[in-house]
Design a protein around this nucleic acid. Sequence first.
RNA 1: GCUCCCAUCGUCUAGCCCGGUCUAGGACAUCGCCUUUUCACGGCGGUAACAGGGGUUCGAAUCCCCUUGGGAGUACCA
Length: 480
Amino acid sequence: MTVRVRFAPSPTGYLHIGGARTALYNYLYAKATGGTFVLRIEDTDLERSKAEYEKLQIDDLKWLGLLHDEGPDKPNPKYAPYRQSERTEIYQKHAQELVDKDLAYYDFCTEEELDAMKEKAAAEGRDPVYEGKWKDPAFHQEALDRIAKGEKPAIRFRAPKKSYTLNDKVKGSVTYPENMVGDFVIVRSNGQPVYNFCCVVDDYLMEITHVIRGEDHLNNTVRQLMIYEALGAKIPEFAHVSLLIGHDRQKLSKRHGATSVNLYRSEHYLPEAMCNYLCLLGWSHPTEKDIFDKQDIVEVFSLDRFSASSAMYDLEKFKWVNSEHIKKMDNASLILLIEQEPETEFFRKQSPEWKNACVELLKRYAQFITDFPKLVNELILNDDPEITDPLKEILSWDTTPQILAFIAEETGKVTSEFISEAELNGWMEHVKKIMGVKGKPLFQGVRAALTGHDHGPDLKFLIPLTPVRVLKNRVAHLNK
RNA sequence: GCUCCCAUCGUCUAGCCCGGUCUAGGACAUCGCCUUUUCACGGCGGUAACAGGGGUUCGAAUCCCCUUGGGAGUACCA
């Protein structure tokens, strides 16, 4: 059996990190099993669905590298179309078949009548169950007559009176008691089919073998089980992945701040890092590895390593994962990414050797790609550093003024754009031998004179990357 | 309210299915130390958890029940 999985977002907003995680698991499972990853657009809620969101979500998915094998833009004629709004006739046909078999019926109940039933059920402390007269087959003819007169009924599914058991890949055995749900609408009176129905018809017709989705659908599944049964369809495997929660332990949503993928994308997080972090929320690597890329995971991914409890989204760890991916990345790729950042004119103009040395030095300090331009500015280009207290202290040492004077003199003599490590070493030697300064006063003094800071990366790597004109300005600045 | 799901360090988790090897392992964060002639990077180490109560058993983080806590669902939303 070839695995077919799907990610089925509603285009009612940006791609959410929870959605991205679900998409990721589906993608990974497809790749791990040599299966097919299908993208289906669940836009049956005409009011909220927008074509632009569909495009935006697909863009985000692509950015994450979660490319689908089939979808609206990559249709397989056997299963197309992939937008539910374009499949209305398919749903109506199947709904009609259910009515013909008396597995569903026309319902003309008004909103008021329905509300009254719900209130009654609530008062009696049970779930609302449809008890309208149209449930009775005796009224079928009356319904037909009203339809003939042009009235529009909803189509309601006749929920079997029995309990259902689901063998979920992550939750294990789940039993839905009899009467958990009453008869439910599958086609609205305006002819629009409803999610639970579309979902099953599509999964059935698209031959989906594994449904990997959020736990918020766990209760829905009983309705879907009923429909599979009524349709005579094979029931796929289900894996209800636990939900992502925010710091207040509530389901992650917009009010938790940065929860849409495009936000991280615009802040230039690495897509691989995002997949890596998201993957770890509720799933664990068999050898407890926590830094990996998609290729590594595909080889070991399986549905039996999901955690059953919900996971808190923690930006701190995500940031760490991002920084680990930066450290792992080769310099050439890093340089390419950095040059796409704004305010990197200086960086872009430098020699390949300079860029490589610069990235090699700075990547251990950077958590994000956007940190590189910042670090270059602070560490390499800033020529009037702030005089901080620790810096003042170094400047007050007896030996510092002479170091400062010496550095001013030496940098004044340099005509090249940069100095070499050897030249720097020469200066250090001079200060050490001729001036008799060593240890902390030596290094801290030279550091202060050349960088205007009391701390930072190793001087022998940093200074050869710093333009001599900046060095000159700094010494002049400090001499004032 | 009702139904379903969940419960190991602050956080993500391993272990649970197939009880003993768990005085519970890893990672983030945090704290400390070491190294480096400075500063970092790094390395090493510390603090820190089986929600509570009953069973079952020679033995329970692991199996069962209850309580408590948390989450989700309860639509002619998805």
